[in-house]
Simulated assay, not measured.
Amino acid sequence: MQSRFITVEGGEGAGKSVFTHGLNRALTAAGIPVDLTREPGGTPLADGLRELFLHPPADDKPTAITELFIVSAARAQHVATRIQPLLERGTWVLCDRFYDSTRAYQGALGGLDESVLEPIIATSVGNCHPHLSFVLDCPAEVAMQRTVAREKAKGRDQADLNRYDGGSQALHQHLRSAYQALARKFPERIVLINAVESPEVMVASAMRVIRERWKI
């Protein structure tokens, strides 16, 4: 079976981690060899960049362009040393976030123009592009409630949230709108999933898309 590269996208609190792990289990149960990974991260070097990206020094907040270079450096390493070799061996790759996150966060949210974003994205991935991307579409108020509840469940308070988790409802709405715009721009690749549904329903919806698209 030809390998496929699937990405999962969405704002904070959309439920990407639960959905991605559920989809990984469903693909495995269908007899598909799949590797589950995430961004920023996916390799030891990229994981180090992820930590810097999520938790920068308190007195030295990165600019949007700095964020772009950090996540792009991590992505270049991830693609070259993990994603591309797996695809070449026939393994499917399922990735929690990829370059649509850069477009949403550093682009729409950070204010970087496409003329800046796209050449760096293109350089970081080369010819490695997702065959299919699921965007978890979640109302801003629901996303915000989930991020706060998640941290409370871990015994942490608002001060422990990273700068995106702890964002305002307006931030969550801005991210949602950015992803919806990307879905309109790339309709052949991006499929919206209703993130208010249960994880089981969301995974079932995704698997229907995969089966219909690739006849597995």
Rank of each mutant, 00 (worst) to 15 (best):
L171S: 02
A178F: 05
A178N: 05
H172Y: 09
V196L: 13
P187Y: 05
E151N: 13
E200D: 14
V196H: 09
A181I: 06
A181S: 11
L171M: 10
L182P: 02
H174Y: 08
S168Q: 07
N194H: 03
A149M: 13
I193A: 00
Q169A: 13
S198E: 08
A181E: 10
I193K: 03
D160A: 15
R189P: 04
L175R: 03
P187I: 04
K154I: 08
D157L: 07
A178Q: 07
F186P: 01
G167E: 01
A149L: 14
P199Y: 04
P187S: 05
A181C: 07
L161I: 00
A181D: 11
A178T: 03
H172V: 00
Q158N: 14
Q180G: 08
S198A: 09
H172L: 03
L161G: 00
H174D: 11
R184L: 13
Y164L: 15
Y164Q: 12
L175Q: 10
E188T: 11
A170S: 10
A153S: 13
A195G: 05
V196K: 12
E151R: 15
A170N: 10
L182I: 04
A183H: 06
H174F: 08
P199V: 01
L175I: 10
R184A: 12
K152A: 14
A153Y: 11
L182K: 07
N194W: 04
E151Q: 15
I193H: 02
E200W: 06
V191K: 10
G155R: 09
